[in-house]
Design a binder for these strands. Structure first.
Length: 823
RNA sequence: GCGAGAGUGGCGGAAUUGGUAGACGCACUGGAUUUAGGAUCCAGCGGGCCUCGCUCGUGGGGGUUCGAGUCCCCCCUCUCGCACCA
């Protein structure tokens, strides 16, 4: 025995054994309860950071715990390996992105193994390997057939720094999510997923996600942004043109006093032609477009606009209202045209005041009298309709439906649902991604690459220094023949957004080596959905929404049988140091390598689990790591100093225990209950660990007591400590388990059995309060009844002194808790 | 502005249904051991006071209750997300 345990030797020993024996390899076993635990796979950026350590420590505890509870646990790991950093790093070093990526994977794999994480490495996958992306290309072909993918020309979000298009979800505050450079609008062709076809289901099924944090569900709900209302056509006076609008407040439609169009609205040019306003409008458009680009996003612009010289007709009352181009109307939402009701919409109100346009009240709130001449802001509350022709006197909420029905009968409008969610743009103009498997033919148009010709490989991937410029610069890649007519044709040169790969990797893990199809439906049916998914909240919208979409799409394509991919989601907090997120730029990073070198993986794992509950931010504290190390060494010494107790198999005779032994026996079982509940209810490993610490503290002091601790009790206690700690510090526990003479590995052992009889308290402490303040404590039999408690409380010396001659007004007795005497 | 979450010692954090606030750990203080240091062990550790005891104390202010960190109302601060969404 040493003073401190030799973590290096011990950790190396067990890691080698787990590797050699493939201890964590699983197969799908129909009929046996499965548990699929998954942490968001890493981007192979070079080396792991503390965020990874935390994420994977949490996942590993869950995996190991569930194994100990008898589940068939799948716990896979892989690499989100396509993406821009590889390309940039490769350019800088004059190497190929593939070699940079695979080198990083090799290194990071050794790091993960050094942490003792219980992965089934036989399921490892890398999304940049043709064995993975060929199946993604096949899925793409299926989606093309179903019309779930299409190509269109639009204004896209262009990051000049990354030289690529971004999805709307990847634009954060107007900046690129990756490089923080401003994103510019650019018109170009691109490929899109029809995620909006699934908007309604993606929204409705949020209700099924009871195991997700409310925050994430809310964020997704807002992102999808469903609005219901009226779509309605306003005829342009003196022309055949109509302007379609959408409103969520059809009840206010009689209050329309003007119409405003986004500056990008396609009708503007036509409308202004020949009105004398053409030049003014054009100038306004140009000016506004410039301002929009320049505007810092947190400040709202003043409402401004310009008259187009034209009017349109409100189909409800036949009124002619002027049409304006306005700077605050969004082309991306609704129809890009807004019926303006200044009395009941704040933006319209501000605009009307600025341009002296009429304000007409049509909803009079109960108990209020709105006066358009003096009101200072729009009134948006419900009320009674006025100035609304046949709808006068109706309740505004009821009127919404009535007005929609009226529009439908008259044929100029209809009930309409609109979403904020846009189709997902997946084209990227970069090299290191999955090639989109289609060909452009002058004669046949867009032709999918036939299935048997897959994969469409990235050119030059095999060469160490091969070219990796964007595909549109690689003539050899582009030149091909049309699969349909056989004439010369050009390959598609866009590659896929890397979020496509991460949208289905969790399903591919269920049959990672399948060479005949993307997924084995049987295996997927057994393993999916993922029971517990763990990762950072920064993916609340992007990755998690895309994965939900893919799951539904794959279900509809006949590959999967589930509606949702992740039953339970745990979003772990960030790792913080000195009050800020660890990052290279802030210079506050702690390298996990150094820590593992100095303290060992078990200590690092223990600290990261102990310092905070998983969903909260974790403040890194070097002295806290010392504490974790100290604790493990204390356990180590405690086990070694008491190895004798493992010599006998004698069962515990609960009846004949002395007080010290009885106490330890009780505490042992109370700890089993507490740790189990902490893990089961919310993965609060911090309280689980503190529970074991208490047990260890009591064990140490019990062994030091004059009264001998019963060896059978001590043995059970020590075994319990090692078993409970095993999911968190596996090498350490496995070693001590073996050293204390256990032939089987803890990995296969079952979780300790909680014995309620053993945990039962014979005597409990009752608090005695006078007027709600604690004045004394009583130690009584656990089953003492109300009368006994009351009698003992009144007889207590301190209480008696306080009461003197006063008669209690009331005495409250709470079983097993307290007695409160009210004077 | 809208939405979600949080506010407890010097610090990280504990506290079933409302029932002993501060578990566990870190830091700190004193002691033992040691040539010394480290490690280890023992004791103390929210504030105040007349220190066997009393009193104040969970962001602030009200309220409900025998009793409130926990429930209700108002306010403040912080974090995150969305943001001219018609």
């Amino acid at each position: 025995m040493h003073d401190r345990y030799e973590f290096k030797a011990i950790e190396a020993k067990w890691q080698q054994r787990w590797d050699r024996d493939k201890t964590f390899k699983v197969t799908h076993q129909p009929g046996r309860a499965k548990y699929y635990v998954l942490e968001m796979f890493p981007y192979p950026s070079g080396k792991i950071h503390m965020g990874h350590v935390r994420n994977y420590s949490i996942g590993d505890v869950v995996a190991r715990y569930k194994r100990m509870r008898g589940f068939n646990v799948m716990h896979p790991m892989g690499w989100d390996a396509f993406g821009l950093p590889a390309e940039n790093a490769a350019m800088k070093r004059g190497i190929h992105p593939a070699s940079w990526t695979y080198d990083n994977i090799a290194y990071m794999r050794t790091q993960l193994k050094a942490m003792g994480l219980s992965y089934d490495w036989d399921r490892e996958l890398a999304t940049c390997s043709p064995e993975y992306y060929r199946w993604e290309q096949l899925l793409l072909l299926r989606m093309l057939e179903r019309g779930l993918i299409y190509r269109k020309q639009t204004t896209v979000n262009w990051c000049d720094d990354c030289q690529t298009v971004l999805a709307r979800e990847q634009v954060i505050d107007g900046l690129c999510w990756r490089c923080d450079q401003p994103v510019l609008p650019k018109t170009m062709h691109g490929w899109f997923f029809r995620i909006t076809d699934y908007a309604e289901e993606l929204l409705a099924d949020l209700d099924k996600l009871g195991g997700w944090p409310e925050k994430v569900v809310t964020m997704q709900r807002n992102w999808i942004g469903k609005s219901t209302g009226l779509a309605c056509d306003f005829k342009v006076e003196g022309s055949d043109l109509t302007i379609p609008i959408f409103t969520t407040r059809p009840d206010t439609i009689h209050g329309v006093t003007f119409m405003s169009l986004a500056v990008e609205h396609p009708l503007l040019q036509t409308l202004t032609a020949g009105t004398g306003q053409a030049r003014a409008v054009e100038e306004f458009i140009q000016q506004t477009l410039i301002e929009k680009q320049r505007a810092s996003l947190d400040e709202e612009q003043d409402k401004r606009g310009v008259f187009t010289g034209r009017h349109c007709i409100n189909p409800f009352n036949g009124e002619r209202v002027p049409i304006y181009a306005a700077n605050f109307v969004l082309m991306e939402y609704g129809t890009g045209a807004v019926m303006a009701v200044p009395a009941h919409d704040q933006r319209d109100f501000e605009f009307a005041r600025a341009y002296s346009l009429p304000v007409r009240i049509v909803v009079q709130p109960e108990g209020e009298f709105l006066n358009p001449a003096v009101m200072a802001e729009a009134s948006t509350v419900p009320g009674i309709l006025i100035n609304s022709g046949p709808f006068n006197g109706m309740d505004s909420l009821a009127a919404q439906q009535a007005i929609i029905e009226h529009a439908e009968q008259q044929g100029f409008g209809r009930a309409h649902v609109t979403y904020r969610l846009r189709d997902w743009g997946i084209s990227r103009q970069r090299y290191w991604g999955t090639p989109i498997p289609v060909v452009h033919c002058d004669h046949c148009g867009i032709v999918p690459v036939p299935e048997q010709q897959l994969p469409v490989l990235l050119p030059g991937a095999g060469e160490p220094k091969g070219s990796h410029s964007p595909l549109h610069q690689q003539e050899e890649f582009i030149a091909t023949t049309c699969p349909s007519c056989g004439q010369a044709a050009r390959r598609e040169t866009d590659t896929l957004d890397t979020f496509v790969e991460s949208s289905w990797y969790f399903a591919r893990y269920t049959s990672p080596d399948l060479t005949t199809a993307p997924l084995d439906r049987e295996a997927a049916r057994y393993w999916l959905p993922v029971d517990q998914y763990i990762g950072g909240v920064e993916h609340a919208i992007l990755h998690l929404l895309y994965s939900r979409f893919f799951t539904k799409m794959l279900r509809d394509l006949g590959y999967l049988d589930v509606d949702e991919p992740f039953t339970n989601l745990l979003t772990q907090g960030m790792v913080i140091k000195d009050g800020a997120k660890m990052s290279k730029s802030k210079g506050n990073v702690v390298d996990p390598n150094d820590l593992i070198e100095q303290y060992g993986a078990d200590t690092v794992r223990l600290f990261s689990l102990f310092a905070a509950p998983p969903e909260r931010d974790l403040e890194w504290n070097a002295q806290g790591v010392e504490g974790a190390s100290r604790f493990l060494n204390r356990v180590y010494r405690m086990v070694y100093q008491n190895l004798d107790c493992f010599r006998s198999d004698r069962p515990i005779d609960a009846e004949s225990l002395n007080e010290t032994s009885r106490q330890l026996y009780r505490k042992t079982h109370q700890t089993i209950r507490r740790v189990t509940e902490s893990i089961e209810s919310n993965f609060h490993f911090n309280t689980a660990i503190s529970g074991v610490m208490e047990l260890v503290n009591l064990t140490t002091s019990s062994v030091g007591e004059a009264e001998n601790v019963d060896p059978a009790v001590l043995r059970q206690t020590l075994e319990t400590v090692l078993t409970l700690l095993f999911p968190m510090v596996p090498h350490f526990c496995e070693e001590l388990w073996q050293e204390s003479g256990h032939p089987a590995q803890l990995n296969g052992a079952v979780w300790p059995q909680f014995n309620p009889e053993a945990a039962r308290e014979d005597e409990i402490t009752i608090v005695v309060q006078v007027n709600g303040k604690v004045r004394s404590k009583l130690v009584v039999a656990a089953d003492a009844d109300d009368q006994t408690l009351q009698r003992l409380a009144m007889a207590d010396e301190k209480i008696a002194r306080l009461l003197e001659t006063k008669e209690p007004k009331k005495i409250i007795v709470v079983q097993k808790k307290l007695v409160n005497i009210v004077l």
